[in-house]
Write a protein that binds this DNA or RNA. Structure first.
Lengths: 178, 178
DNA sequence: CAAAAACATTTTAGGCTTAAAATAATATCC
DNA sequence: GGATATTATTTTAAGCCTAAAATGTTTTTG
């Protein structure tokens, strides 16, 4: 049985222990996390547009390429960014047009496209990345160092939980359960 | 001075105390939060499509209307969902076509459009909401109750920090600083 | 080795999303 | 009371995003 002291405050009339199939705490947690993510994303989008006349998808894509020395394939980028292949194709097209990204098919496997930052692309990204890091620090300025560390740890646990729940469901579908 | 024990593990060669203007911890925290949000969102999107042949924007919009007894204006919904007015207009159009939402201009102020769920809309939403709550609970199943409570609290602090940082910047812009 | 399967990417069709301009209605201010 | 400002919403133009089908390439298999 759950103790009231560890339960989130939900409703003055109702105790969590009285509602057996209730999962309102998880729902509230998710909504709060979504609010935080949306606030940060919107703010970063606005600043990227105002200061650099660019978009978050472009920035994110360039960030992936910046981390790689030898370049990345379309598939690798799409997996890292958790977006569809077709989306990467489209965003890359814009970046290639603007001379920020280079795209060439791999010599040993002509199915694969290797994406790399051009020299101007890398330079532009580094300038943006520096500002980006400052913006994020500003946004989290109200949290002290232990709070940041603890939040980071709890989100790590969350990530593990999510991966497991999602993997289980994929397993079910493959076996034809449910 | 920061103590190494409370610092996130970053890099074997470098201690946080040696890098003065560094904000890598905040950046890592943000990326981890974004990963969690994206994993949840994608999963919920997939399940809504598979089980109910609908989309997350539609579900979110109906969720707002379900909470209101008297209906909501386009502006209220757009503020709550943190999306543009034009976006609400577009999503509502689809829901009206499908008979799930009713839209009528307010009698005392004909600029305002009052949105309400229709009876079928409310019924359809309630069925989806029940499943949605279960899905979220499943996804967070790896966290025990104290972890959920603590994460909720820390995200509350985060929200406060974000609101303040964003408000400060809007203030600067209005005064012409920066 | 040729047919079939697997793979990487692109294309397509459609919905979401935004910022900015346009429209329409109400409120404010001489 | 009529010009002006404000407010609420819609429209527009452009980019993001996805799932599913199509294309072109490589690998596997009989």
């Amino acid at each position: 049985m759950e103790t009231p002291s560890t339960s989130l405050i939900l409703d003055r009339e109702t105790k969590a222990s009285e509602r057996p199939g209730d999962h309102k705490d998880e729902l509230r947690l998710w909504l709060r996390m979504l609010t935080c993510s949306t606030l940060i994303e919107t703010e970063i989008r606005n600043r990227l547009r105002e200061e650099f006349k660019t978009t978050l998808p472009r920035f994110d894509l360039m960030a992936q390429l910046d981390k790689s020395v030898v370049g990345m394939t379309v598939g690798e980028v799409s997996q890292r960014l958790m977006v569809s292949n077709g989306n990467v194709t489209a965003v890359v097209a814009g970046l290639v047009t603007d001379g920020l990204v280079d795209k060439r098919s791999a010599p040993q496997d002509r199915r694969v496209q290797i994406l790399t930052l051009t020299a101007p692309g890398r330079k532009a990204f580094r300038a943006m990345a520096e500002r980006h890091e400052d913006w994020i620090a500003e946004l989290f300025a109200g949290l002290d160092q232990p709070a940041i560390a603890q939040l980071f740890r709890l989100l790590g646990e969350t990530k593990t939980s999510l991966h497991r729940a999602i993997a289980e469901r994929i397993g079910e579908a493959a076996r034809g359960d449910a």
